[in-house]
Design a protein around this nucleic acid. Structure first.
Lengths: 251, 251
DNA sequence: GCGATCAGCGGCACG
DNA sequence: CGTGCCGTTGATCGC
């Protein structure tokens, strides 16, 4: 247990030297901004990062229960009963958090030196690049149209032409596809159809798809390919691509 | 600075007693699971919660750079050069994180007692309830259809009938609406239209809407209402609702 | 700066 | 459990 006075000093020291500040104590939290919230008293971990990030964590769950993004301004004060830690930010909207500690178990701060950024493998973008190189896996004669894809409003994952000269929009999902994936594909196809004035095929590729989504997909005249891929450490690789038989759903 | 041996003991102690464990040190991080990633050496904060949650935080940004959800299993060991902290989970997919500490600056663990849950005000659901009570703000004669809304596949925010007996789907957004909001509304309207066999009106309500989205909305024959609301502490209140004039966009 | 979209999205509620 | 969808979504990239 630490006196609120000591805690105050410790937090101030950390903030002044732009260090990572950790506070553990019994507190209640109020938030007001895009929404508003109140959290009654309990033990929580408060993390304040040098960039202004402000995180209140409970003992469970991944997500912070209350938070403030980078660029927020932290301040500390002592009132008659509590240690008050506030975080305020004005942009994009005015938001305010107040953490009111009645007890503080621990305070410390640390300088952090870290210039590294994450190298991630298996993103949708990376998978799309892989798939671009192997469009024949979907269908022989499919050839990619470079950079056309990025010229749309909401850019299409892959744009290609088939052997008959039809435009083909390919929507790639790295995880199971749902209704939203189909509506997204539909929007792209309709935009392009209107713009080009001719029929455009739509193909959805994903590791899996929900029953409703597949039904809607077929209803709209689109095609589905089940995508098998593997993500090893330095890259991601497409293992297979299999057209789902439409007949199963006809009724 | 703490010896890796001490760090090992400290972490084990915390894990065994189901406390919140904090580790600060210089480490590299590898992840493999739904995707894969590598993060080169730097100073990071590791948070391990009693429920298995595992968070690696850099000095910037709100989101953890690597993480593992509740239910994950943490283990610690010492190899020839480093302190290895691993987190593993099998469901829903096998995932693995390895944090390799070459230096540890701080380790501690804390029991946390907290049974409180967040009271949040200003959620979309709460706004929808408010709006249900004041549908006349949109248009006189609009009456809500109870519980119809939840009987759809992707449930509609509000379903109502107008004075002419038309079905009206109302999609409510608590923040600025984009193309996705319009496609969502469109899907609901089309589903319902097909099911009921008669024309269904679609109305989008949000604090704001992007130009492209409004264009698409009007193209599809839907209506837009600008929604002004205020979120005070114990509730959220709708301040106003104003139909946007379509004429501005005709060309 | 806004706009659009992805995310190892997470979390929740419902069937 | 999967499905669907909101989120104080956050983060990124393009314009």
């Amino acid at each position: 247990m630490i006196s609120l006075n000591e805690a105050l000093a410790g937090i101030k020291r950390g903030l002044d030297s732009s260090e990572l500040v950790l506070v553990l104590g019994k507190c209640l939290v109020k938030y007001s901004g895009r929404a508003a919230s109140k959290l009654s008293e309990g033990d929580r971990l408060l993390v304040i990062k040098p960039d202004g990030t402000f995180l209140v964590h409970q003992k469970s769950k991944m997500a912070a229960i209350n938070y403030q993004g980078p660029g927020s301004k932290t301040s500390v004060e002592l009132n008659d009963c509590c240690l008050l830690v506030k975080s305020e930010r004005l942009k994009p909207v005015a938001e305010h958090i107040e953490v009111s500690f009645s007890k503080v178990f621990f305070v410390d701060s640390f300088p952090m030196s870290d210039d590294e950024s994450l190298k991630l493998f298996g993103s949708e973008k990376q998978l799309a690049q892989e798939l671009m190189k192997d469009l024949h896996l979907i269908e022989p004669g499919l050839t990619p149209l470079k950079n056309e894809s990025s010229s749309l409003k909401g850019s299409v994952d892959i744009l290609a032409t088939d052997s008959a000269g039809n435009l083909v929009v390919i929507e790639l999902k790295r995880r199971n596809a749902g209704l939203d994936s189909v509506t997204q594909l539909k929007r792209y196809v309709e935009e392009l159809q209107k713009r080009k004035g001719k029929r455009v095929r739509g193909i959805l590729c994903s590791p899996n798809i929900t029953e409703n989504a597949l039904k809607m997909l077929y209803n709209d005249g689109f095609e589905y390919f089940k995508l098998d891929y593997e993500v090893s450490n330095p890259s991601s690789r497409i293992k297979g691509l299999q057209r789902k038989q439409k007949e199963l759903l006809d009724f």
